[in-house]
Simulated assay, not measured.
Amino acid sequence: MLKKITVSRVAVAVSAAVLLLPTAGAVFAQTSAGEPLRAIYQKPVSEWPAPTIDEGVEWSEMAPLQLPKRPEKGSKEHLIAALGAKLFDDPILSKSGQISCQSCHNRELGWADGVKTSFGHDRQRGNRNAPAVITAVHRPSLFWDGRAATLEEQALGPIENPIEMAAELDKVLERLSTHDVYPEMFFDAFAANQISADLLAVALASFERGLERKTRLDLFMEGRHSVLSDSQIRGLHLFRTKARCMNCHNGPALTDGKFHNLGLTYFGKPLEDLGRYQVTNDPKDVGAFATPSLRHIRNSAPYMHNGVISSLRKVVLLYNFGGGRERPRTKKEAADPLFPTHSNLLQPLKLNRTEIEDLVSFLEAL
């Protein structure tokens, strides 16, 4: 069955895969040593079972995320973030005056937009899924291909992108400078008489950095053990061990900040996207995309860089198969130095139905 799955059919394959899964003979609720999982995981994280990590993988242990203290009302930091919040919601940043940052990063849709790939200026459709901006603060680089090094750099990108907001930055700054409210808000926040692109970027980035909130896993690791169900604790154990998730999703932010090829490049097909390669021109980066943080992941479906996976259950099924499978169809493709190489961190997991349900339940607690 595994050998027949190709990337062009992966969405169909994961939808049907559950029919082929074995069921568990008994619910996995304790370790081989007989100690109940809940008792084990109610201990400090330092005493949890060691995660399954491949040799050579750099990783860090799970930990509650330490949120920065919220700025005092009226402080400079508060005024900058408040300015950024207003700008984030304002379509004044777009050419049409109808698209805002919020259009693709909607607070009611998990700070994403709920569609496979986003619509922009003149209803043009991009080729990538809108990442949930609530976790943007954790990323060492931004966009799925990592082409922006900072949140400030990323914030200006969509404004000028012809498919997204399609504006000319000079004209946006002119609009802001002649607006009834913005000149005073920029002066109060930055003591600046002139609105610049740099200040615009700082305000938007400041707002985005303040979006993160605690998850149930954070609370659990801080001692509020009733917030996770038994199923979610079993899923936590699977996440750390048999499911091999911590090879890429580790640390407080549940991301390694790196780029991996999951077999979803669609090389030579209509959905082709070469990912990180478009930034580095390094053949080893063909089809590699940024590892997203899994924090708040339940709210931001659909998933993957192109939104082709509609639910967390189907994401888990994809990984259970060992990822997508891209194989050359012709000798020419086989000889192409850009034909993508599937990450060696992915391998079939052999999770049964109960384990899949538990792992999905845990992901929903994030």
Results as ranks from 00 to 15, higher is better:
178 T>K: 14
148 A>Y: 03
170 D>E: 15
125 R>H: 06
131 P>K: 08
150 T>D: 06
173 L>K: 12
159 I>A: 02
148 A>L: 01
157 G>K: 00
157 G>L: 01
128 R>C: 07
130 A>C: 11
164 E>G: 01
134 I>P: 08
152 E>Y: 00
165 M>P: 08
150 T>N: 04
126 G>N: 14
147 R>H: 08
143 F>K: 04
179 H>A: 06
158 P>L: 03
156 L>C: 03
148 A>K: 02
159 I>V: 10
139 R>F: 13
147 R>A: 01
155 A>Y: 00
159 I>N: 05
127 N>S: 15
172 V>E: 14
134 I>G: 14
154 Q>V: 02
168 E>K: 15
149 A>T: 09
155 A>M: 06
141 S>Q: 10
137 V>F: 07
165 M>I: 07
153 E>D: 11
163 I>G: 08
134 I>H: 11
167 A>V: 05
176 L>P: 11
150 T>G: 02
137 V>I: 05
132 A>D: 12
136 A>M: 03
177 S>R: 15
146 G>F: 01
153 E>H: 00
128 R>I: 11
135 T>K: 14
127 N>P: 04
155 A>S: 14
174 E>F: 12
140 P>N: 12
173 L>F: 11
137 V>C: 06
147 R>T: 03
171 K>G: 10
135 T>L: 08
126 G>F: 12
127 N>H: 14
174 E>W: 15
159 I>T: 05
168 E>W: 07
139 R>C: 08
132 A>Q: 10
145 D>T: 06
154 Q>E: 12
162 P>T: 07
156 L>K: 00
133 V>I: 15
147 R>C: 06
166 A>G: 08
178 T>A: 10
178 T>C: 04
129 N>W: 01
166 A>H: 08
135 T>D: 14
169 L>Q: 09
174 E>C: 05
169 L>C: 03
134 I>L: 10
143 F>G: 00
138 H>C: 09
155 A>F: 03
162 P>C: 09
170 D>G: 13
179 H>K: 10
143 F>S: 10
163 I>Q: 09
138 H>P: 05
132 A>L: 05
171 K>Q: 15
148 A>C: 10
131 P>T: 06
178 T>E: 11
171 K>R: 15
166 A>K: 05
152 E>A: 02
